[in-house]
Design a binder for these strands. Sequence first.
DNA 1: GACACTATGACGACGCGTCATTGTTC
DNA 2: TGAACAATGACGCGTCGTCATAGTGT
Lengths: 123, 123
Amino acid sequence: VRIGELAERSGASVRALRYYEEQGLLSPQRTASGQRIYDEAAVDRVRLLRRLYAAGLSSSTIAAVLPCVDAPSAAVTARTLTTMREQYARIEQQIVELMTTRDQLAYLIDAAAAHERELLASA
Amino acid sequence: VRIGELAERSGASVRALRYYEEQGLLSPQRTASGQRIYDEAAVDRVRLLRRLYAAGLSSSTIAAVLPCVDAPSAAVTARTLTTMREQYARIEQQIVELMTTRDQLAYLIDAAAAHERELLASA
DNA sequence: GACACTATGACGACGCGTCATTGTTC
DNA sequence: TGAACAATGACGCGTCGTCATAGTGT
């Protein structure tokens, strides 16, 4: 599959796909003229990359974790294991903070909506 | 309070505080010589700003929402209310995705840890 | 040969970190 | 009179968006 189709199917932009490759996270084949050719597995791979980016991991951290995804039973160093555990803890913390923010926002919305109903009632 | 103390108490960096001001989210007084002077309320204000940034809101979106925080019963436009509801939905979605990523990471960690135990056992 | 797709390169945006330089406070 | 703090300005970073320009596929 070519870059445009992969973009559509994975949810990433064409620009992002080229960037991921630049970061060593994707290694497509090339046609004779230089166009990138991806295999089917690239779709899931890119979705994973996007999830990890969205969770706040950097390109280099993702690069460090990927071998563990590709070969779970291979050379996963203790260092990588530590990194993954750190990220896990960070994400959990992030979830808690997001829930707090969400609740605070809900409170603001309720207050504003109540005020709007008052305005309507007085009209 | 001066900028250094506010930074320490709010968790933001001095650089970030100046940036927030640049974005119109903070309006400290100034001494005759030009130093920024914040009131006590600025501490909570900055903590709120940081939570909103961490939840993925942009400076301009935060600026749009702030009046609603400062004067809940005042000029909260329908437009602002819509923005807040959009952000609420986005954050909820983000929480779900983070939980998925967290679980996926946990799975990887377990697999890698299991493999490590095998190595130890065979030694 | 037209038209969509792709390639590379460069610049821009956002939310700051960081450094250099100069002035302020105590 | 130091020593810590603050001010402004500028550049850098990561993750792309966006545009320009040129080649490719059908």
